[in-house]
Design a protein around this nucleic acid. Sequence first.
DNA 1: CCGTATACCTAGTTATGCTAGGTATGGAAG
DNA 2: CTTCCATACCTAGCATAACTAGGTATACGG
Lengths: 108, 108
Amino acid sequence: MLKGHLDAIVLAALETGPAHGYAIIETIKQRSAGTFDLPEGTVYPALHRLEQAGLLSSAWTTPPNGRRRRVYSLTKAGSSALGERRKAWGRFSQAVDTVLGGGRAWPA
Amino acid sequence: MLKGHLDAIVLAALETGPAHGYAIIETIKQRSAGTFDLPEGTVYPALHRLEQAGLLSSAWTTPPNGRRRRVYSLTKAGSSALGERRKAWGRFSQAVDTVLGGGRAWPA
DNA sequence: CCGTATACCTAGTTATGCTAGGTATGGAAG
DNA sequence: CTTCCATACCTAGCATAACTAGGTATACGG
């Protein structure tokens, strides 16, 4: 479970440029060193949600010698949403660190 | 939303000693500097779940000049579960940091 | 030509946290 | 003394999120 941070992760995967769903899954898997091996049933609905919310835009591409692909790009709203999500993640993870540590640092 | 990390947080709040539900809520609020101000409808069911799972044990106390309180303690299983949750959190937050950073560090 | 990897999709299940209520008591304020 | 607030517990039902488990179709290698 990605526990509500999936959106941020997907948006971050698109920050370096447009990509299609399957590639996004690969990017996330590689960047997380295999920790986040997301099933398609998780990612595709998320992409649709994010597009619905105006954070992504999509276009079909049909390269001459390739399969049809739906390529997603960050919209301006998506970029700024990513910024907010990052901040929210920072606050959240900081707070969890503190609470889990009982107020003091704990070894990783 | 605490996104699946509520159990770890509650367990951690009980690590320093037994406490009752209301006090647990206060502890979490203080430790997180107000970030996690959990509604009772979140915490009480969680406590019941954790007891059901054998990670907590509870007993009613009725102090001479106080209200009735249900005091929860970490069981041995609860302690070890907390250890695992901490490790899981470490891995998870590390992975999210990496993915959100696009492979590089990003400023807090 | 057949299997595997690529590439997309969705209906339905499950879990989880929260909303919104309810009950009851102790202590402070008026 | 009575009224109100903080303490203290509880649950039913809602919303959402991610996942399971299916389905479709095409390119490419053996």
